[in-house]
């Protein structure tokens, strides 16, 4: 129905081109050949099956997290607290794991995952309650709770969950191997995790698209006042968006714990909560593109390690690429809304 106008195509490609140019310039300044670096970045992400599996591991977290953020984004909320919600999900999962320490994985792992989702939902709900009843802006509430989660983690791994007989203060005791998600032989990726990520993605995608709940979120997100007049209860709708988003965060946290880390470490969330926001900024208008964007971000993240190892460049270069991409995209959007119309009108 809708045809892409030439303006839309120009403003869609502009950020890609611009960020490539800026990154190339940066690489040249660092004394390297942009083509080599880009090549290494790509082979580092998808060059071997180990690399592909690693990228998929990152994708699982990013896909779940960014789809969760899509929900709060749809409701017009900036859930900066996602990072803390992932961490709390992992903590809750680990706490449950301690209860089912000696159970077989078929029982233990689902319990841990459900506990993780409950933990994430609880933490997100705090943000929602502060926002709705306390009048605290969600950005401040989320950011504050992120710090609280870090403190909780540090306390737990340095006191109650400290490995027995170890002087380590940076990790908790390892989970028994029965509570690890099984990975493909020789690789770090678990089929269960990928399936769960796909399920979560589809579930959220179709909920946003085809349910009354999804429509209510949209109405509240676009115009709370108008939504109220049309009979949409604003507060419960907002609350539900945070709970669902928190459940996604908790799922991601639990999967990071049982599938990847197998113990609580500080910053187990690895910044996925923030990267998820970038993904939603980039692709949030078209939810179908969110898992794809997550794939690109995951690949860039993994490839970033390769450029450090083989080219002695800092791996944060990959982060710069993604950040620039989002920034340029936002600038292009801004320019489009400012000047795109006049181009069309003429």
């Amino acid at each position: 129905m809708k045809k892409l106008s030439s303006t839309q195509i120009i403003f869609g490609l502009l950020p890609l081109v611009l960020s490539l140019v800026v990154v190339s310039l940066l690489i040249i300044v660092l004394g390297q050949n942009p083509m080599t670096v880009m090549g290494t970045l790509i082979t580092g992400a998808i060059g071997t099956d180990v690399k592909i599996a690693d990228s998929l591991v990152a994708w699982v977290s990013l896909a779940i997290v960014s789809m969760g953020l899509m929900v709060t984004f749809r409701a017009g909320q900036w859930n900066i607290g996602m990072e803390g919600q992932i961490m709390l999900g992992a903590i809750a999962a680990y706490a449950a794991g301690r209860v089912v320490w000696n159970s077989p994985g078929v029982i233990g792992i689902p319990v841990m995952i459900l506990a993780g989702m409950a933990g994430g939902a609880f933490w997100a709900m705090l943000v929602a309650l502060l926002r709705i009843y306390g009048g605290v802006h969600e950005i401040f509430a989320g950011l504050g709770l992120n710090f609280v989660t870090t403190s909780i983690t540090i306390y737990l791994i340095s006191k109650p969950w400290k490995p027995a007989g170890s002087s380590s203060v940076s990790t908790s005791e390892l989970l028994p191997e029965t509570l690890w998600l099984q990975t493909l032989p020789g690789l770090r990726i678990s089929i269960v995790a990928v399936v769960l990520a796909l399920l979560a993605t589809l579930l959220i995608y179709f909920s946003l698209r085809g349910t009354f709940w999804g429509l209510r979120l949209k109405a509240v997100g676009l115009n709370p006042r108008g939504a109220t007049l049309m009979g949409v209860p604003t507060a419960p709708t907002l609350l539900s968006s945070y709970i669902v988003c928190g459940m996604a965060a908790g799922l991601a946290g639990a999967l990071l714990l049982t599938g990847v880390r197998h113990q609580i470490v500080n910053n187990i969330s690895s910044g996925y909560g923030f990267t998820g926001i970038l993904i939603v900024l980039l692709a949030g208008k078209f939810p179908i593109l969110v898992p794809l964007a997550a794939l690109i971000f995951a690949g860039l993240g993994v490839g970033g390690t390769a450029i450090r190892l083989s080219l002695k460049l800092d791996s944060s270069l990959a982060g710069i690429v993604t950040a620039l991409l989002v920034l340029m995209f936002e600038i292009a959007q801004g320019l489009q809304s400012k000047y795109g119309k006049t181009i069309k009108d003429q």
Binding site: L215, K218, A219, L222, N223, R225, G226, A227, L229, M230
Partner: peptide, 12 residues
């Protein structure tokens, strides 16, 4: 601003 939700369709 108040009556309708800008960005949503008539069907929605």
């Amino acid at each position: 601003v108040e009556g309708l939700v800008s960005g949503m369709t008539i069907a929605e």
